[in-house]
């Protein structure tokens, strides 16, 4: 927009420069004496604690279960019938989920997803200190709406992808990918500060935490969709 020939852009930038005057560009130093990336070890027990503290369900492979076994247990106990998965999940997951699985081919609409009981995804990483999982829309996580519309989100976290702190996570993530940081199920405290879980996102978040050895995957390039066939 222009007024008197000066665009809003030029005028706002001009005002900023005028406001800063001579001080413009003098850069105060930024002391980064807080604990930065790589400052401490990863504590898997802490992750489990923090996830549970924010009321996520957690399954670990204490008995040496594979991810497929844990997925099958979770689905059976949940009683969920229909699931959606992103196109890039490993074949073993699909087998464990059985016949009711819908693989996202990029055309599923929000209304389609609203009719599905749950979603299974991987994640980019998890943060032990805060009990957070982060999705970055890689092939095993898919489009952002997949993990948003269904009421139950089952997320596989590989122990190798757990980092200790927020700075560790920021150092590892690629900001040009769409990122979703998830800490527990959605919640509100808007009514008298009383916490109610499950407002608009999935009302249940369940995490399966396994070593990578228990979650074998065929070699593939991250970010590339695999050719998993659509089943229904």
């Amino acid at each position: 927009m222009t007024s008197g020939g000066v665009t809003a852009r030029d005028e706002v930038l001009g005002r900023v420069r005028a406001a800063l005057g001579e001080l413009r560009g003098t850069l105060p130093g930024v002391p980064r004496s807080y604990h930065g990336a790589g400052a401490g070890p990863v504590d898997l027990d802490l992750l489990v604690d923090r996830l549970r503290d924010y009321h996520a369900l957690v399954r670990t492979n204490g008995d040496g279960h594979t991810v497929a076994g844990l997925l099958a247990d979770a689905v059976r106990e949940r009683g969920a019938r229909s699931f959606v998965v992103p196109a890039g999940v490993p074949p073993a997951w699909l087998e464990a989920l059985g016949s009711g699985v819908l693989v996202d081919d990029g055309t599923l609409t929000p209304v389609d997803l609203d009719a599905v009981d749950g979603v299974v995804t991987g994640c980019a990483l998890a943060i032990a200190e805060t009990g957070t999982i982060v999705l970055d829309a890689s092939a095993d996580q898919g489009r952002r709406l997949l993990s948003l519309v269904p009421d139950y989100h089952l997320c596989v976290v590989r122990e190798e992808d757990v980092v200790a702190t927020v700075p560790d996570a920021v150092a590892r993530l690629d900001p040009t990918r769409p990122l979703t940081w998830i800490s527990g199920p959605s919640a509100t405290s808007d009514i008298e500060l009383e916490r109610v879980e499950g407002v608009h996102g999935p009302r249940t978040l369940e995490v399966i935490l396994v070593p990578a050895a228990a979650d074998p995957r065929p070699p593939s390039t991250p970010g590339q969709s695999s050719e998993a066939p659509v089943q229904s």
Binding site: Y54, T130, T132, W181, G201
Partner: peptide, 12 residues
Amino acid sequence: GERMNPYTSMWT
């Protein structure tokens, strides 16, 4: 007063 809020979305 949470270690992390339930959801943070980032897009570029």
